Each structure stands twice: as structure tokens, then as C-alpha cells.
Amino acid sequence: MVHLSVVHGDITTMRVDAVVNAANNAMRGGGGVDGAIHRAGGPAVLADCIEKFPHGLATGDAGATVAGNLPATWVIHTVGPNCRAGERDRSLLVSCYRRSLEVADELGAKTLAFPLVSAGIYGWPKDDAIAVAVETIASSTAGVDEATLVAFDADTHRRLVAAVAR
């Protein structure tokens, strides 16, 4: 069973085996969490994305690259559904967390840091994004020991803490 915790902070500073990146389909960097991870990780992250995922990833899927200059060992990139663009299938968001945990198992990663996938610029309703993250991670049978949900702002942190406590 995965132990789930919550922190208020910057995912690029997390000292874990793998950080999960809320990526776009192209896997070439972007804004929000994706841009922050690519900037902090440096060119090695992008180079590995291009090599391993020349055609990107489908929504709901996940794949791993090196972490470059990040304190983590790997980056697990997952492509969340873009609610603002009409992608509203909740199972795709569930798949992001499930696939990320499966990739972590393949890597042998025991500690993960997750952002709240799709809840930023992709516009997924925050309360549902929180519910999906907590329910999917908490019910996982992955070999991951510790999953940390990293909240960038105080309101999201408060809401995540409340959800995990339930």
C-alpha cells in the first residue's frame, strides 16, 4: 500500500526517486509544471523526451526520462486531459496516475512526487482533480512506498490535506 502525503512547495526541489510531470502530448516542454521541470532539469530532460518519445504520448499515458539537474533520478511524464479543449473523460485522468505508478514500478522507484495533473491550465475542476489523485494513488497496489502530492499554492495544499485526511 502506498503511503500518501501532501506538501506545499515546488515539485522541482523534491528529493524523490521520480517526479511526475504534467506534460503535453508533444513532450517538448511547455508551461506550468511542465515548463518548470524542463527548466530545472535542463536540456537532458528534453533530449531524452525527443529520443524516447519522438511522437509524444497519448492522453492518459506515461513514460520516463532522466531527470537531468533535478534532485530526483527520473521524471515520469504523464499527459492529462485538457478539459478546456473538450477532453472531459475522467478515466483519462485516472489513467495518468495509474500509468505513472506502473512506470514507477518498472523503474523500481519507491518515492514519487506528483503535481495535481490537469488542474492548472488544462482546467480540470480542482475538487475532482483532487479526488482522482487521492483515490487513485491510495487504492494503488504499486510497489511505491511513498507518494507525495505537491501543492504549489496554499489553497490547493489545504484542500489536498483535507482530502487525504478523509
Rank of each mutant, 00 (worst) to 15 (best):
C49W: 05
C49G: 11
C49K: 10
H55R: 14
G56C: 10
G56L: 13
L57V: 10
L57G: 08
L57Q: 12
A58N: 15
A58M: 15
T59L: 10
D61Q: 14
A62D: 01
G63W: 03
G63Y: 06
A64Q: 11
A64Y: 08
T65K: 12
T65Y: 11
V66S: 13
V66R: 14
A67K: 12
A67P: 14
A67T: 13
G68K: 15
N69I: 06
N69F: 14
L70P: 14
A72S: 07
A72E: 03
T73A: 13
T73D: 10
W74M: 08
I76G: 08
V79I: 07
V79W: 09
G80V: 04
N82I: 06
N82V: 05
R84L: 06
R84C: 05
R84M: 06
A85S: 15
A85C: 11
G86S: 13
E87D: 14
E87F: 00
R88L: 00
R88V: 00
R88A: 05
D89A: 04
R90P: 13
R90M: 11
R90H: 15
S91C: 15
S91Y: 12
L93A: 07
L93D: 01
L93M: 13
S95C: 10
Y97K: 15
Y97N: 08
Y97C: 09
R99A: 00
R99C: 03
L101T: 02
E102L: 04
V103K: 06
D105E: 13
L107Y: 04
L107W: 04
K110Q: 06
K110T: 01
K110E: 05
T111Q: 04
T111K: 12
T111P: 11
A113K: 07
F114V: 03
P115I: 00
P115E: 01
L116P: 00
S118Y: 04
S118I: 03
S118M: 03
G120V: 05
I121P: 01
G123D: 06
